[in-house]
Design a protein around this nucleic acid. Sequence first.
DNA 1: TCTGGACCTCG
DNA 2: GAGGTCCAG
Length: 272
Amino acid sequence: MIRQQLAWFDPARIGHSGQCFRFAPLPEGGGWGLTARGRRLCIRPDGDGFLFDCTPEEWETVWYPYFDLDTDYEAFAAAVNPRDAYMTAAVACAAGVRILRQDPWETTVAFILSQQSNIPRITRNLEAVCRAYGAPFADREGNIWYDIPTPAALAAASEEELRALGLGYRAPYLRAAAARIAAGQPDLASLAAMPYKKAHAALLTLPGVGVKVADCVCLFGLHKLDAFPIDTHIRQMLDAHYKRGFPMRRYKGFAGVLQQYAFYYELYGGKT
DNA sequence: TCTGGACCTCG
DNA sequence: GAGGTCCAG
């Protein structure tokens, strides 16, 4: 168990932000639990800081990088045009949200499942897939959790089995994409080293992955902060507030972070 | 290149 | 109808 005081870190907002789907309130309340990188982590508020139930070594090598704590998000917030009332409000609403360094394969699975869906359902579907095909592991208290299935494990599943989990027409997409990744076409590990546009183009070749999903994988799984996924919420936001176009030049290098803040603001703006 | 309809469930 | 993709025309 370790304690940390962290700038720009709000687990509740991160958990609701729609970038990750295995990040949920603890049943006893007051904290958050997440499954990632083949591990389980609990986060509990503690005064002006947080308690993390991991070793200092795990913190340094796994969770500190996962939460992208080396990146200065306050600097991104400060770079927002003060005359842009909409983005100023969005950033204030989403303060504390970071772009997690999630696994590219996990984000590929999650966002293939995300089409024509919503956060509660994506969460349910992803959990079902992990329980059915993922490797179980125990936390330090002996509770069993399930990792994201390997590409090979999902490729070996039948469409019928996947449909039985409630995936609907996404089942054949997921299965086919898993087969492609298992064959190394494309090799997800090598995408991280590519520039955003090349990585995006490679992801577009996957079945069930269009422009929007590829951008989500780029932003959330490959940490390409230039990626700017446009879904219906962001589309409406752009039409309403940026009729002359979003200032991509001004925000080059981190436009995707602001996209995430706008997205959060669109979803929860009235209620936080 | 661009537009429209189908697609599985479920809140 | 939904935080989208695919295929036909």
